[in-house]
């Protein structure tokens, strides 16, 4: 048999902890590393012996503390082998954190090393304004992270100017930024003649914000007549 499928789409020669297979699949080498926390249901294939535990105690405790129940569905992957992850055809971005800290939108996290310090936080203010909670995974330390982005992301430097991001398009931001919510809609904007851009998160300080070219299709708060 011959063809591009065999010629170009075979296993990649990368043996790093995490790498991409094409633009939309993340490959995780599970040999001799810490466990990986991955988005529940994101496994598309694996080789070897890997166990998936969608309700590990450390996550369950966190989930219980949330009233809404929405959040970041994560599972712990343990074992030996190669693990392939994807999230509905979103593009995958692999990062290797080196004692950096990153806050990732819960919708855009695909996988990360369990050895990283991590925490799931509710972004202040967003839940009040837009009627739904926004949960971020804060990652810190040394290790690998796989993010997803619907479409190619863009990285904005918040040092240049205060940067406002649609909460649905936010992928991640570096820690240490001052975050505030902004409500551009005047009262009239809520009744029939809005611009469609009601709430944003403003970032200020020394760092970067990653934005995806899509606003995840979710019910939006719109009090339109």
């Amino acid at each position: 048999m011959q063809g591009q499928l065999l010629q170009h789409y075979g296993q990649t020669p990368n043996h790093e902890r995490m790498s991409t297979h094409g633009a939309k699949i993340a490959k995780v080498m599970m040999q001799g590393g810490p466990d990986v926390l991955a988005r529940t249901g994101s496994m598309i294939a694996y080789e070897g012996l890997i166990d998936f535990n969608p309700n590990p105690p450390q996550i369950a405790n966190m989930v219980r503390s949330w009233a809404s129940g929405e959040g970041v569905p994560l599972m712990v992957c343990t074992g030996q082998g190669e693990l392939y992850l994807a999230d509905y055809g979103k593009e995958v971005v692999i990062l290797q954190l080196q004692n950096e800290a990153l806050s990732v939108n819960g919708k855009n996290i695909l996988a990360f090393d369990a050895s990283l310090q991590w925490n799931i936080e509710r972004v202040q203010g967003v839940s009040m304004l837009s009627g739904m909670g926004m949960f971020n995974v804060v990652l810190r330390g040394q290790g690998w992270v796989a993010l997803t982005s619907k479409g190619t992301p863009v990285v904005l430097n918040t040092q240049e100017a205060e940067t406002f991001v649609d909460t649905d398009a936010l992928v991640a931001y570096t820690e240490g930024l001052r975050v505030k919510t902004k409500r551009t809609a005047r009262l009239g904007g809520l009744f029939g003649r809005g611009s469609g851009e009601a709430f944003q998160l403003g970032f200020h300080g020394h760092g970067f914000v990653v934005v995806q070219p899509s606003e995840d299709a979710r019910p939006r708060f719109q009090a339109r007549g």
Binding site: H8, V93, L95, E100, W144, V154, V155
Partner: peptide, 23 residues
């Protein structure tokens, strides 16, 4: 889109990956 066979390793540091997405 690149073929998976053309994959490149990821360099350490978050910004080394993110730089190519810069504004």
């Amino acid at each position: 889109e690149p073929y998976p066979s053309q994959a490149q390793p990821t360099q350490p540091g978050a910004m080394s990956t993110l730089n190519k997405f810069r504004e």
